[in-house]
Design a protein around this nucleic acid. Structure first.
Lengths: 157, 157
DNA sequence: TATTGTTATACTCTATAACTATA
DNA sequence: TATAGTTATAGAGTATAACAATA
């Protein structure tokens, strides 16, 4: 019983330290800056870029679905989609059965822009040079495993 | 020569995929939400919380040092430190030799608050349950290695 | 009556410009 | 003259409230 409790404590401590190292790389760090730079070079506000990524990666969505996914107010989604539509990156279409709903769909230009953002974001952090190829492979596989689990978990995104 | 180029390509691709999995967990994800929640429960704006963390973790700093570290305008630092000082979490002190400079030092209450934030932030992502203890240890060590390298690198923070 | 989306409005966060004090 | 910090102000980003259209 005590051994089991110790094992739980150790496990939790390991998970905590891992998570700590993970967000330490992002909070106030290169990740944020990278994302902001990508937005600036698109000429789009960060929210709009996230919305574009959402629409491309999860397929066309209604305004409400976007608001729910972002945990934000619908009126804010209006302004984001306005910006994207004005830039020709998405279109508002009619929902086939419910005429209250507007469906946000990506355009070819939007797809291209999303690719462009991905290119910028995925350029690796220079500090990753301290890892050799085997370590990188290991890190990638571990993170992907967590990432996939987090995509599957409801509410965690 | 071709083999070397291939190795470089592979390496870069690995680094890219790793970085991608890393920021995928943060961008628009649990990390952001977690941080915002922590700020809300402190009753402080996000910028102020980051400033508090900086002052605690890097020792007392001048206003200018904070502005440089955040890549932001000094006037914004004024408002952040105002908020922290009003909450009794930091103090503005006189610089011993240069009377233009104000040194921002954490108070006992500030130290406690920073601990509190750390507790909330470091609570692991539930999806990390998909990893066993050995995998967690591996992940932690790899991320810490990168993290330390990134702290040492100038300009990367 | 409840829900989707928009408009009008206000509040928070962050930057720019002008200023004071010190070096 | 140049630098540290503040104030006043303006601009993004985001939310709240009231509203129109559809279900």
């Amino acid at each position: 019983m005590s051994i089991e409790a110790d094992r739980d404590t150790e496990r939790h401590e390991l998970a905590r330290q891992s998570w700590q190292a993970l967000y330490g790389l992002f909070l106030n760090g290169e990740g944020q800056r990278r994302f902001m730079d990508a937005c600036a070079s698109c000429g789009l506000p960060p929210g709009a870029v996230k919305a574009l990524m959402q629409v491309v990666d999860h397929g066309q969505s209604s305004m409400r679905e976007l608001a729910d996914s972002f945990h934000c107010d619908p009126s804010y989604v209006t302004s984001l989609v306005d910006a994207l539509e004005q830039a020709g990156l998405v279109e508002r279409r009619l929902h086939p059965t419910d005429r209250r709903v507007k469906v946000v769909a990506v355009t070819p230009a939007g797809l291209e822009m999303r690719e462009d953002v991905e290119q910028r974001l995925s350029e690796p952090l220079p500090s990753m040079d301290v890892l050799d190829n085997d370590e990188l492979r290991l890190l990638r596989d571990l993170l992907l495993k967590v990432h996939h689990a987090s995509l599957a978990a409801p509410g965690e995104r």
